[in-house]
Every structure is written in structure tokens, then in C-alpha cells.
Design a binder for these strands. Structure first.
Length: 416
DNA sequence: TCTGGGGTCCTAGGACCC
DNA sequence: TCTGGGGTCCTAGGACCC
């Protein structure tokens, strides 16, 4: 058996821990540049605010209804997530952290499933202050189905879904688009084949599904029939690391773009080192504003392979600059840019490249450790590369950000 | 005026080989 | 006139997820 533990309205719940005045009113959390809605309280959902909706379209209505909008505070959410995950680990030993606000754990079918769920829901609420929903079922896909029911429960937020008749009953009321793993495209194709409900999908012939929609959709069908195809996974080492942003104002100068992208490289490389990995390639991408259709549209990316795997920011900066030179075009107003580090491997399992002695690699790694230690001790960007701008970055708008209650001494909550 | 960011996996087709 | 057949590996892009 699997259990899926998912924090309710996670970003909003994090904010409410330290701002109780936000309880019982409509609250939304916005993406970078205060662009889109990425989390909604139950009250905001009730006002009809949809996920990923551009905030400017609903701002007037939302505020008129007494709603509060907050910029995203990822430091806070990451820290609260860490607390939740560590409690899950204490309780269930092995867990799969599936996203910032949800995790899978394994249970035995002989366990007292509902009681375990309920107890754990109460524990998280008491010790961290966020409410979690828990869906328990024989496959991950059915856990996702179960948790939808759990979230609708007024109080206990736990739902166990094992019985075939019950699964069938719920699937009859579920459209295929709402099944985990079925997206817009697949749903359209299924509809074309005459399959509209989850139950129709469950009973569809596997061979046909595999042939026309691929192996993933076939797995989904099997999972709906209680055959577990998706196992627990380990996400502790990412296989790629992305750092990208939309800018508040568009940029057309090469130098300005290069300077900003160097910040992305810096941040991606830091994360690379924090997970004790090396990467051997970097993709640079740039794009114009896709919503300004009157402007000339352009987007492009370039992959620069490195001669050997490294975690040395300087190497990635050089590669980025080369890549950017290949794709940069004059006369374009760039709105978005970013980098992806690829071909990531564990730094302790490194394949030696014959051209470079392990001594050189060791030197580079020591250099970067020193770099990171200094910045950890004396503050971010105490040391930085010449291509970067000094000081913090001010090119994104975060007008309504709350304090870093749990990660900054200056921002600790004040008790009156 | 204003529209996010970060991931994973699969697959078709190209390049290359014999 | 007419131009094989079988295989592997890699990669860009698609589809999906939160």
C-alpha cells in the first residue's frame, strides 16, 4: 500500500502560520514578478480564482472581496517543507519526496490504515501548523484519486481507497483529464476514442492504449486496476538543475543579458554543489515576451558540452557566454532567460577523464568549497565572479513578500 | 501596464555502423 | 526503369507533473 501525504494549499498555509490574521479570509500567493496565482486558500477558490491565473486579471475583484495577495516567499516554504518531510521520515522511515508539498510513503495492507493517517494528520497540524490530506491506496495513481476525496472531507482529511467497487464508483464520476498522468493531449485523444470517464479508461484494452498512447498511459490503466507499476523513487539527486527568470523589464543589450544569466549560472552551480554533484553540460536559453505578439518573437537555446564533469562555476560561466553568443540576436526585447545544468552525476562516482588529472579536479573542488564557505559565513555574494553584478538582484518584482520568519535573524516573528 | 519556475520520462527520427 | 536490411546510440522536443 502507498500513502500520499499532501499539504493543503501549501504556500498559503505557510503564510498563515506566522500571520494568523490571514485565517478565514481569501488569500493567494503569486509567482515571481507577482505574475500568476500559484496558491489559493479555500476562500479564494470559492471566489472562483483559478490556478495559474494572471493576477492582474482578477486583482480588482479579489481585493474588493477582502482578499489578500502575497508574493512568493520560497525560503519560508522550503523551510516549512523540510519540517514536514522530516516528521514524515521519523514516522515512516522511507519516503519519496515528490514535490515541495507532497510525499509518498509505503504501508502494509495489514496496517490500520485509516488510524495511521488520522494520527499523522493531527501530528503535523500540531507540530508544524499546516494541515495535510492523506490518500491511501494500493497504487500511486489511486492515491492521487483518493486524496481528492480526502481533501473534500471537512475534518479528518484521510481517505482509504482499496475496494474495487468503491474505486469503480469514484472513477465513474471522474473525467479522464482529472486522472494523474493524463494531460490535455492524452485526454483529447481518449475522448476521440470514446473514452470519457476514469471508469471507461480503467476498462479499456491495455494493448490498444499502449499502441496508440504510449507506455505511460498503459501504466495508468494498470494502476487504476490496482496493479502497481510506479515504485518509490529517490529524488535526492536531481538529474538536471534549472535556474531561470522572467524579467520585470525587457532587455535587449547583450551585456545586460549576460550579466543576469551569470546570476542564474551562479545559483544553479551552488545547488549542484549542495547536492554533491558534477555536471558536464549547460543549456542557455533566451526568449522574447510571448504575450507581446506585436513585437518580433524569438526564442532559442544552445547546449554547450564541457570537456569533463565539474562543479566549477567559472567553467559554466565561460560555457554560458559562448552559448549566449551563438544565439543572441540584436533588436529583440528579451523577457525570459535561463540555464539548465545537465548530465549530472555524483561527485564521488566521477568517471575520470584521461585529459585531466584528478589533481586538477581536486583543486577546482577545493576552490569552490572555499568560495561557498566564505559566502555562507559572511553573506551571499561576499565573493562573486567578475561577470556578475555586485549586490543582490533587483530585476524581479516581489511587492508583497512576507518576512523570512524561520531563516533570518532579522525577520524573526515579534511577540507583542 | 500586467501573464512563473522547476522538474522527469518517453519517443521519433537522425546519424552512424555493418 | 531498377538502389537492402538490420541494428545501436543520441538528442530534441513533446507530454506530463507540481
Amino acid at each position: 500500500m502507498f500513502a500520499l501525504i499532501d499539504c493543503d494549499n501549501f504556500f498559503v498555509s505557510c503564510e498563515r502560520i506566522f500571520q494568523p490574521k490571514l485565517k478565514n479570509i481569501p488569500v493567494v500567493v503569486l509567482s515571481n514578478n507577482d505574475g500568476c496565482v500559484v496558491a489559493r486558500s479555500a476562500e479564494a477558490k470559492a471566489l472562483g480564482v483559478t490556478m495559474a491565473c494572471p493576477f492582474f486579471k482578477i486583482e480588482k475583484m479579489f481585493r474588493a472581496q477582502g482578499g489578500v495577495a502575497l508574493s512568493s516567499n520560497y525560503e519560508l516554504y522550503a523551510d516549512i517543507s523540510k519540517r514536514v518531510m522530516s516528521l514524515i521520515q521519523q514516522e515512516f522511515q522511507n519516503l519519496e519526496i515528490y514535490s515541495i508539498d507532497e510525499a509518498f510513503v509505503e504501508l502494509k495492507s495489514s496496517d490500520r490504515l485509516y488510524e495511521i493517517g488520522l494520527k499523522f494528520h493531527q501530528k503535523i497540524l500540531k507540530e508544524v501548523g499546516v494541515s495535510v490530506s492523506i490518500g491511501i491506496a494500493p497504487t500511486k495513481t489511486l492515491c492521487k484519486l483518493a486524496i481528492e476525496t480526502a481533501k473534500k472531507m471537512p475534518k479528518d482529511k484521510v481517505f482509504v481507497l482499496t475496494d474495487e467497487a468503491k474505486i469503480s464508483e469514484i472513477l465513474k464520476q471522474t473525467e479522464v483529464i482529472d486522472i494523474w498522468g493524463i494531460g490535455k493531449n492524452t485526454a483529447q485523444k481518449l475522448n476521440f476514442m470514446g473514452i470519457f470517464t476514469g471508469e471507461e479508461l480503467r476498462l479499456a484494452p491495455c494493448g490498444l492504449i499502449k499502441k496508440s498512447l504510449g507506455i505511460n498511459t498503459e501504466k495508468t490503466v494498470l494502476e487504476l486496476n490496482r496493479f502497481a507499476c510506479l515504485e518509490m523513487e529517490n529524488h535526492s539527486q536531481q538529474k538536471s538543475i534549472i535556474s531561470s527568470r522572467s524579467f520585470e523589464k525587457e532587455i535587449s543589450q547583450f551585456n545586460a543579458l549576460e550579466q543576469i544569466i551569470s546570476e542564474f549560472v551562479d545559483s544553479a552551480c551552488l545547488r549542484l554543489r549542495q547536492q554533491h554533484s558534477l555536471a558536464s553540460g549547460i543549456i542557455v536559453f533566451i526568449a522574447s515576451n510571448r504575450f507581446h505578439i506585436s513585437q518580433q518573437q524569438y526564442q532559442n537555446s544552445f547546449l554547450v558540452p564541457l570537456p569533463y564533469p565539474t562543479n566549477n562555476t567559472a567553467k559554466f560561466l565561460q560555457a554560458m557566454k559562448f552559448g549566449l553568443t551563438q544565439i543572441f540576436k540584436d533588436g529583440i526585447f528579451y523577457k525570459r532567460a535561463g540555464v539548465t545544468l545537465i548530465d549530472i552525476q555524483d561527485q564521488n562516482l566521477k568517471q575520470q577523464n584521461l585529459l585531466f588529472s584528478s589533481e586538477q579536479n581536486l583543486k577546482e573542488q577545493k576552490l569552490m568549497s572555499a568560495f561557498d564557505e566564505i559566502n555562507a559565513k559572511l553573506g551571499k555574494k561576499t565573493l562573486y565572479f567578475g561577470i556578475q553584478k555586485s549586490g543582490q538582484q533587483y530585476f524581479i518584482k516581489r511587492q508583497f513578500k512576507s518576512r523570512n520568519y524561520t531563516t533570518s535573524w532579522d525577520d524573526l516573528a515579534i511577540v507583542h
